[in-house]
Measured scan of single mutants.
Amino acid sequence: TETRTFTDEREARRFEQEARDNGKDVQVRESNGKFEVRVK
Score class of each variant (00 low, 15 high):
35 F>N: 00
5 T>W: 15
20 R>W: 06
39 V>H: 02
22 N>G: 09
4 R>A: 05
6 F>V: 00
1 T>R: 07
7 T>S: 11
13 R>G: 03
12 A>S: 02
20 R>M: 07
22 N>A: 15
20 R>K: 09
14 R>C: 10
35 F>K: 01
10 R>L: 11
14 R>E: 10
10 R>Q: 11
7 T>G: 07
35 F>S: 01
26 V>S: 03
35 F>L: 04
7 T>K: 07
8 D>Y: 04
38 R>A: 09
40 K>C: 15
5 T>V: 14
4 R>L: 09
32 N>L: 06
29 R>G: 05
35 F>I: 09
38 R>V: 15
15 F>K: 01
14 R>S: 08
10 R>F: 11
8 D>G: 03
34 K>S: 10
29 R>H: 11
33 G>D: 04
38 R>L: 14
27 Q>G: 05
24 K>W: 15
10 R>S: 12
5 T>P: 02
38 R>W: 13
6 F>A: 00
5 T>N: 05
6 F>T: 00
32 N>H: 08
20 R>S: 04
40 K>D: 10
13 R>V: 05
30 E>D: 06
1 T>G: 12
10 R>K: 12
8 D>E: 07
24 K>D: 06
9 E>G: 05
24 K>N: 10
1 T>E: 13
16 E>I: 15
16 E>H: 03
27 Q>A: 09
34 K>H: 10
38 R>P: 02
29 R>E: 09
10 R>A: 13
11 E>R: 03
34 K>P: 01
18 E>I: 11
12 A>W: 03
34 K>D: 04
18 E>S: 09
18 E>L: 12
39 V>C: 06
2 E>Q: 11
26 V>H: 00
36 E>Q: 08
4 R>Q: 06
7 T>R: 07
38 R>D: 08
37 V>I: 07
26 V>W: 02
34 K>I: 15
26 V>A: 06
17 Q>E: 07
9 E>H: 06
21 D>Y: 09
3 T>H: 07
18 E>D: 08
26 V>E: 00
36 E>G: 02
17 Q>W: 07
9 E>V: 08
4 R>V: 09
18 E>P: 00
4 R>W: 14
7 T>M: 09
40 K>F: 15
39 V>I: 11
30 E>R: 10
36 E>N: 04
37 V>E: 01
2 E>P: 06
30 E>T: 09
40 K>R: 13
3 T>V: 14
33 G>K: 03
29 R>F: 15
8 D>S: 09
27 Q>E: 15
17 Q>R: 11
2 E>L: 13
4 R>F: 14
13 R>Y: 07
34 K>E: 09
18 E>V: 08
26 V>I: 04
8 D>C: 14
21 D>L: 13
35 F>D: 00
33 G>T: 01
7 T>C: 14
8 D>I: 04
19 A>H: 06
28 V>E: 01
18 E>G: 05
24 K>A: 11
38 R>G: 05
21 D>G: 09
28 V>H: 02
6 F>P: 00
5 T>I: 15
17 Q>A: 09
12 A>F: 05
39 V>R: 02
18 E>Q: 11
1 T>I: 13
38 R>M: 14
28 V>S: 04
13 R>I: 06
16 E>Y: 10
23 G>T: 02
19 A>T: 04
10 R>V: 11
40 K>E: 11
3 T>M: 10
8 D>Q: 04
8 D>N: 10
22 N>T: 09
39 V>K: 02
27 Q>R: 08
24 K>Y: 15
3 T>R: 06
40 K>P: 05
21 D>E: 12
36 E>S: 05
7 T>H: 08
4 R>K: 08
10 R>N: 11
22 N>S: 13
2 E>N: 08
31 S>V: 15
34 K>N: 09
19 A>Q: 13
25 D>T: 11
35 F>G: 01
25 D>L: 12
27 Q>L: 12
28 V>Q: 02
36 E>Y: 14
31 S>M: 14
15 F>M: 04
23 G>W: 04
14 R>G: 05
10 R>I: 11
28 V>I: 12
19 A>E: 08
17 Q>Y: 06
1 T>K: 06
37 V>G: 00
13 R>L: 08
11 E>D: 10
10 R>G: 12
11 E>I: 04
30 E>H: 11
36 E>W: 09
14 R>L: 12
40 K>G: 12
33 G>M: 03
16 E>V: 13
25 D>E: 13
6 F>L: 00
1 T>L: 10
24 K>R: 11
38 R>I: 15
10 R>W: 13
35 F>W: 15
31 S>Q: 11
28 V>T: 07
25 D>A: 09
22 N>E: 12
25 D>P: 05
16 E>S: 09
27 Q>D: 11
11 E>H: 05
6 F>G: 01
6 F>Q: 00
39 V>E: 03
35 F>V: 04
2 E>C: 15
25 D>N: 09
23 G>F: 06
5 T>S: 08
39 V>S: 04
36 E>T: 09
39 V>M: 06
4 R>D: 01
21 D>V: 10
4 R>P: 00
7 T>W: 11
16 E>F: 09
25 D>M: 11
7 T>D: 12
11 E>V: 04
23 G>S: 03
4 R>I: 10
13 R>K: 08
20 R>L: 10
4 R>H: 12
40 K>H: 12
1 T>Q: 10
22 N>V: 08
5 T>R: 06
14 R>F: 07
24 K>H: 13
20 R>H: 05
23 G>A: 04
29 R>N: 09
31 S>D: 10
1 T>N: 10
26 V>K: 00
38 R>F: 14
39 V>Y: 06
26 V>M: 02
32 N>A: 07
2 E>S: 08
20 R>P: 00
37 V>P: 00
29 R>P: 01
1 T>M: 11
33 G>W: 00
29 R>T: 14
32 N>V: 03
28 V>L: 11
39 V>L: 06
21 D>F: 10
39 V>N: 02
33 G>C: 03
2 E>V: 13
24 K>F: 15
17 Q>K: 12
16 E>D: 02
3 T>P: 05
37 V>R: 00
27 Q>H: 10
21 D>R: 14
19 A>G: 03
13 R>D: 02
16 E>C: 15
21 D>S: 12
25 D>G: 05
1 T>F: 14
24 K>L: 14
37 V>Q: 01
15 F>Y: 12
27 Q>W: 14
40 K>Y: 14
9 E>D: 03
9 E>T: 03
18 E>M: 11
28 V>D: 01
30 E>S: 09
27 Q>F: 14
17 Q>M: 09
40 K>L: 14
19 A>W: 06
33 G>Q: 03
6 F>W: 03
39 V>A: 05
1 T>W: 15
9 E>P: 08
28 V>F: 15
28 V>P: 01
34 K>L: 14
19 A>K: 05
32 N>Y: 07
14 R>K: 12
37 V>L: 03
14 R>A: 13
8 D>R: 03
14 R>D: 07
8 D>T: 09
31 S>N: 12
31 S>L: 15
31 S>G: 06
17 Q>P: 00
25 D>K: 08
25 D>S: 11
2 E>M: 13
11 E>A: 09
19 A>S: 08
30 E>L: 12
1 T>H: 10
9 E>Q: 07
11 E>F: 04
13 R>Q: 07
40 K>I: 14
19 A>N: 08
1 T>V: 13
23 G>D: 04
24 K>E: 05
18 E>F: 12
10 R>E: 11
23 G>M: 05
3 T>A: 06
7 T>Q: 08
13 R>F: 06
32 N>R: 06
34 K>M: 14
20 R>Y: 05
13 R>A: 06
1 T>Y: 15
32 N>W: 04
40 K>S: 15
37 V>C: 03
29 R>D: 07
6 F>R: 00
33 G>V: 00
34 K>V: 15
9 E>S: 06
21 D>T: 10
34 K>Q: 12
39 V>D: 02
25 D>R: 08
16 E>R: 02
9 E>L: 08
37 V>Y: 02
6 F>D: 00
32 N>K: 07
8 D>F: 04
5 T>L: 12
37 V>M: 02
3 T>N: 06
18 E>T: 09
9 E>W: 10
19 A>L: 10
38 R>E: 13
12 A>V: 03
8 D>K: 03
15 F>V: 04
5 T>K: 05
2 E>H: 11
4 R>Y: 15
40 K>W: 15
38 R>N: 08
13 R>S: 05
30 E>W: 13
32 N>T: 03
